[in-house]
Simulated scan of single mutants.
Amino acid sequence: MKKILVTGADGFIGSHLTEELVRQGYSVRTFVYYNSFNSWGWLDQSPKEIKKELEVFAGDIRDPFGVKEAMKGCDVVLHLASLIAIPYSYHSPSTYVDTNITGTLNILQAARELNIKKVVHTSTSEVYGTAQYVPINEEHPLQGQSPYSASKIGADQMAMSFFRSFETPVAIIRPFNTYGPRQSARAVIPTIITQLANGKREIKLGAINPTRDFNYVKDTVNGFIAMMESENSIGEIINIGSNYEISIGETAHLIAEAMGVPIEIVTDEIRMRPEKSEVERLWADNKKAKEIIGWEPQYYGKEGFKKGIIETAKWFAIPENLKSYKADVYNI
């Protein structure tokens, strides 16, 4: 069995990925953000049979000493730890450089020194900015339209530089917009669902015309595992996307339909991105993922998206889960 370190394991995607790795029999060490509450984030809600198999390391991805200590004895690092909220990056860009770029550098430097067999670095579709052509393949130009996306471009380039300079075995996974249970309300789908689940029918949103390529979290998790297991992924940047495009407005109405309630969308100016920072269109070309790592989405097209939305809404409808969200407050 490979020993795998998952950074950002306490987060949305990281917790789902950690659980699936344990189910598949991998030995997993989780890197969670140190806090005085001894909280493991979403892993606190994992089944007991999962938690008892985990080795938990609490630290800070910005600290090179703790990062190297966490990586000792591991074969593979799945690096998900990052700051991801775009609005927060507008007023605190320095934290994104420290976490996303320097944090990634810490992983890469330790991987080089410890002879880690593989590092899977997490990118984002936001690095492409507004699509210059669709569907977006991995050759599409990169555009830093927010401090967040700029920091992720920097992190991606740092990862590839270590592959080219030192032959560090790096693979870059580039997920498009992931959604599902546990996602933060800073994202649009939980924002809509939590407002509706709390009885609201006038839903506050920002821009509704931009389109996104949404991916159910189970598909994204399978993408990470395929990237990790494939011998062909080293030195590659690979999109994980559904190859299906839908607008934010259409998404809101689809969610309302799935939840069986009427909806009226109200524009909330505080939720609007600056004009030149808004990414107007994202639509993934996923051919490379199919060809190199054998990954294909299971939740694809409109019907797959509806299926994922229904599963997500069911999770949020559970009172114990819903109470963790503040539907009346704009979450940046």
Rank of each mutant, 00 (worst) to 15 (best):
M1Q: 13
L5F: 04
L5G: 02
V6Y: 01
G8L: 00
I13S: 06
S15Q: 04
T18V: 02
L21K: 03
R23W: 12
G25A: 06
Y26L: 11
S27W: 08
T30K: 01
Y34F: 12
S36N: 13
S36R: 14
S36V: 14
F37M: 10
G41I: 00
P47H: 05
P47N: 06
E49A: 10
E55G: 02
E55W: 01
V56D: 03
I61H: 01
P64H: 06
F65N: 10
V67Y: 10
V67M: 03
K68H: 06
G73F: 03
L78A: 02
I84D: 04
I86M: 12
Y88L: 12
S92V: 15
Y96C: 01
I101R: 02
E113R: 09
V120C: 09
T124E: 01
T124C: 03
S125H: 07
E126N: 11
T130K: 04
Y133K: 14
Y133T: 12
E139P: 06
P141R: 01
Q145G: 02
Q145T: 11
S161V: 02
E167N: 15
T168Q: 01
T168A: 04
R174H: 12
T178M: 09
A187Y: 15
I193A: 03
I193C: 07
N198V: 00
N198E: 11
K200M: 13
K200Y: 10
R201N: 09
R201C: 09
R201T: 14
I203K: 05
K204P: 00
G206E: 10
N209C: 12
N215T: 15
K218Q: 09
K218P: 00
D219V: 08
G223L: 02
F224S: 05
I225Q: 08
A226C: 08
N232C: 08
S233E: 01
I234D: 01
I234L: 02
G235M: 04
E236D: 12
Y244K: 00
I255A: 06
A256E: 05
P262L: 11
D268M: 12
E269T: 10
R273V: 09
W283P: 08
A284N: 07
A284F: 13
D285S: 11
N286Y: 07
K287A: 12
K290D: 12
I292F: 10
I293V: 13
Q298T: 14
Y299Q: 03
K302F: 13
E303K: 14
G304K: 09
F305N: 01
G308W: 00
I310V: 14
E311S: 09
E311G: 11
T312S: 09
A313V: 08
K314Y: 09
F316Y: 13
I318N: 14
S324F: 15
A327D: 10
